[in-house]
Design a protein around this nucleic acid. Sequence first.
DNA 1: CAACATTTATTTATCAATAAATAAAATACA
DNA 2: TGTATTTTATTTATTGATAAATAAATGTTG
Lengths: 176, 176
Amino acid sequence: MSPKEEVAASRKEQIMHSAAALFASQGFYKTTTAHVAEAVGVTQPYVFHFFKTKEQLYLAVLDRAYQRMLNAFVSVEAPPEQLSNQMGEAFNDLLQTHRNEILLLMQCFTTPEPGVREFSKEKFSLIYERVKERFEKAGVPNASREASVFISCGLIITLSEVLEMPKLSPWCDDLD
Amino acid sequence: MSPKEEVAASRKEQIMHSAAALFASQGFYKTTTAHVAEAVGVTQPYVFHFFKTKEQLYLAVLDRAYQRMLNAFVSVEAPPEQLSNQMGEAFNDLLQTHRNEILLLMQCFTTPEPGVREFSKEKFSLIYERVKERFEKAGVPNASREASVFISCGLIITLSEVLEMPKLSPWCDDLD
DNA sequence: CAACATTTATTTATCAATAAATAAAATACA
DNA sequence: TGTATTTTATTTATTGATAAATAAATGTTG
């Protein structure tokens, strides 16, 4: 990559990175393209040089989050009895290394934009199918149920993070 | 409801009812006060005669949903072994009788409005504590864990409803 | 100077919220 | 009972702010 390309690439990268943080904490509607631009240190219209619309930016960030998450799950290798726990650990690892992306992905289904809904349906379905398949191949009994439970854990962890209520987290082993 | 009854029912009531439907399907930001007014058949500024701000309207609707849900839970009477299932049933009943309110309540934690966040923290905490307390008094082992799991079930049911993906629902006994 | 990066300036919409006006109903009173 | 008076319900008109998006201009650099 030439220096110019590097700068250009890094701009796009910076924009996506800042956007992830802002979208995760402020949501799609409350995050303005001006906020994103300001966070990066460029002007608002410049954001549209890289993304045709605000929604495209949002979807780009979401898609990267999705890819990372799916990859983390399929990369887990563990014996059947530990599979679910290990994948849970992979989720928690991601939550620490890419917090914004994860929180964003786990909340995106509440954004009532048609394009975002479509994305949510497709990706949640794919994640569910992959996890279920994984459990099935490992011989986990009741794989579909376990896949649902696995996702529901992700949801309540997200809830507890968003609301800053650790006690809601099921493995908040508050050691009672 | 007949036209006359509709008029007889207080405007405020109609507004809250329409608002629940719109907020549930379109969210806080995409639902405009003009939409709500139109659904009721009044003018947009008239909404402000009953609610000081759009957020106040949203919170009023949310609070009613919260009250109804908590009431449904505490009204359940069942032996310890059936308590969790019965409360789950109460949740599903509510989902059928007051679908909008439930979907709204279970998604409100993603609305990044400070006042809404505050509400979410308070109410999710209260629901959690009440459910946990309920389990404890019934002698359910690991009550706090069970309370978390109970809420997480509500979350994934909501997800499956919002995305119209029944397979995600853990008791979608797809009879595998 | 030519291509690319980035900004300035501007447009077009949309929306919450306010204020003032009107119509209809209820109440008081002669 | 009929008329004046007040209250309640609701509308019309408007404002002020904010935000996404476009286009044209400017600077930068190899």
